[in-house]
């Protein structure tokens, strides 16, 4: 499936097969979740990041079914480059109505970045001016978990993490995704 037809599929799923909701409701609900976490975890932003990733992971495990059902993608991705394309043009499109740009492929084609010029989760947000948040908090970290969880369900073990975020004063919001390995079917384990 070509990149253009993936883009068309993404558009089609968004337009015709997706029930929609006020974006600001989602933005504010996500904001409330992050703010509450920061309170619950006493401003330990490293823990907040972990928790957001974990919550995202749980979502990803279930989201993949919704994705497969709505996108009706029959064929598995031929390679990781295809996977990236699908994530951006179909996945992000049908859930968040955005298509982050794919950049910075590594030479072995196992790592790439997603550049977000729009991020509905971070609309209206300004990190706390406490001297720590801008260096420690990855506000949208839930998205990393979602990707990790979703890809695990389709036999890919990946690492996803943000490397920059405009909320931290960087010029871009960039998520790096790294393929660790393809998950083969489980072989009988030794008892150890």
């Amino acid at each position: 499936m070509s990149s253009t037809s993936r883009a068309r599929l993404g558009e089609e799923v968004w337009k015709l097969r997706t029930d929609k909701i006020n974006a600001e409701l989602v933005t504010l609900t996500y904001g409330s979740v992050v703010a509450q976490l920061c309170k619950d975890l006493d401003g330990d932003y490293a823990e907040v990041n972990k928790q957001l990733d974990k919550m995202g992971y749980n979502i990803g495990l279930r989201l993949i079914e919704d994705f497969l059902a709505k996108s009706n993608m029959q064929q598995k991705c031929a390679n990781f480059r295809d996977t990236a394309d699908v994530i951006s043009k179909v996945g992000f499109k049908m859930f968040l109505n955005i298509t982050p740009t794919i950049v910075n492929w590594s030479s072995d084609n196992k790592q790439f970045s997603l550049l977000f010029d729009e991020n509905p989760l971070a609309d209206f947000v300004e990190l706390p001016d406490d001297g720590k948040a801008q260096s420690d908090l990855w506000y949208s970290n839930m998205l990393c978990g979602v990707i990790r969880g979703a890809l695990e369900m389709v036999q890919m073990s990946v690492d996803a993490h943000f490397v920059s975020d405009v909320l931290r004063g960087n010029d871009t919001t960039e998520m790096r995704i790294n393929l660790i390995r393809y998950i083969e079917d489980e072989m009988p384990q030794d008892d150890e």
Binding site: L28, G31, S32, C38, F124, E126, D129
Partner: peptide, 17 residues
Amino acid sequence: CKTLMNPFYEVNMAIRS
């Protein structure tokens, strides 16, 4: 309103920006 829309700002907090 812009101040309030920020999830880290709560009603009745001082505005120091």
